[in-house]
């Protein structure tokens, strides 16, 4: 492994051995039906609270990813996981049952890519050979922590995005040269960028400058243009954040208009009335572990850049009228 500024190159090219995802019923009837391993029948799936259900989803996706690779839990060296709730509630209760060494991560909705970067780095440095990177989010647990109680009759503004109910897990392993699995080749660790947006409904617009900062650093450190990638995906900028990112990169001389999409714009259909698209840790996780991973496996896409984007505010910082610090991490995957 070596680095060029904030960008990392994984010489041994760790592979993504398997992926798994699980979503709620609302996501299940969206654009990506058919790319999910399991669609829950409701937002509780037999559990007594939404938090328990979110833990269940995360644990399920981790077990499923290990199962798909025909590995045992004991084959996994470390789990890196996170979610959106205070004290990583969902994650800790999910991993409690696994008996695998664990490192908790918080990067809001950028957590999956943060986990992929760290897992790849540990494997590249030969500290581990099999790692799990996993995240979860749940619409109702996020609503009650960050906004209003779910039965409160409030109107969601058009800029708001819908938190995805779901979880995704990736099993990242040391490179097996015989396999044709997608490889993690490089990445860029983001800086915290804060452009002064205070409206917590406008998380996509708050995060777009962070995504732009990371992308520009990535392109210049690797000395490439956006067209080097077949597709560039951001995690959850939503409809408005996506337009802002394209404009910000255009001002810096990079053209994103042809091979860029936001995972937050890929999950729901227009009829589902989610306003500006999807958000949450699971936004990038369920799209990458399902649709994008399959495209990589089938070689429909050969070079993909996944940019996880996170709003790092808390309910407290919002009430104290602070703006939204944002971050974005990028990871390059080649098939």
């Amino acid at each position: 492994m070596k680095n060029q500024g904030q960008s990392l190159f994984f010489n041994s090219q760790p592979q993504i051995t398997s992926t798994a995802n699980i979503v709620g019923p609302f996501e299940g009837i969206g654009q990506l039906t058919g790319y999910f391993d399991y669609i829950m029948k409701d937002s509780l799936e037999g559990h007594t609270s939404w938090e328990k259900c979110e833990s269940y989803m995360l644990e399920w996706s981790i077990r499923k990813a290990i199962d798909k690779a025909s590995y045992q839990l004991s084959d996994i060296d470390f789990v890196m996981a996170g979610d959106l709730l205070n004290q990583l509630t969902s994650t800790h209760f999910a991993v409690r049952n696994l008996n695998i060494p664990f490192l908790g991560l918080y990067g809001a909705c950028s957590t999956l890519v943060e986990g992929m970067l760290l897992a790849s780095a540990l494997i590249d440095g030969r500290f581990a050979s099999n790692m799990i990177a996993a995240v979860s989010s749940h619409h109702d647990t996020a609503e009650r922590q960050y906004r209003f109680p779910t039965e409160q009759g409030v109107q969601r503004p058009p800029i708001s995005q819908w938190t995805v109910t779901g979880a995704g897990a990736l099993l990242i392993s040391a490179n097996n040269s015989n396999s044709s699995k997608p490889k993690v080749v490089a990445g860029t660790v983001g800086k915290i960028v804060d452009m002064g947006i205070k409206d917590t409904n406008a998380m996509g617009p708050a995060m777009a400058p962070a995504a732009a900062d990371t992308l520009i650093a990535h392109f210049s450190n690797l000395n490439i243009q956006p067209r080097y990638y077949d597709m560039i995906y951001t995690g959850d900028l939503g409809k408005v954040g996506k337009l802002l990112l394209i404009e910000l990169l255009k001002e810096s001389g990079y053209n994103l208009s042809t091979n860029y999409e936001d995972c937050g714009c890929m999950i729901y259909t227009n009829d589902q009335d989610t306003h500006s698209g999807a958000s949450g840790c699971a936004s990038s996780a369920v799209v990458f572990s399902g649709y994008i991973y399959q495209q990589l496996m089938q070689k429909n896409l050969r070079r993909v850049l996944l940019v996880g984007t996170g709003s790092l505010h808390s309910p407290t910082s919002y009430q104290q009228k602070e703006s939204i610090p944002s971050i974005a991490h990028a990871v390059a995957i080649e098939a």
């Binding site: 058009p158 452009m195 002064g196 947006i197 406008a202 617009p205 408005v240 802002l244 306003h275 500006s276």
Partner: peptide
């Protein structure tokens, strides 16, 4: 200044409520 410029950009794209 950067923040103000960005705020203007954001307002350009921000969907207004019906």
């Amino acid at each position: 200044q950067y923040q103000q410029k960005y705020e203007e950009k954001y307002k350009k794209y921000k969907p207004s409520p019906p």
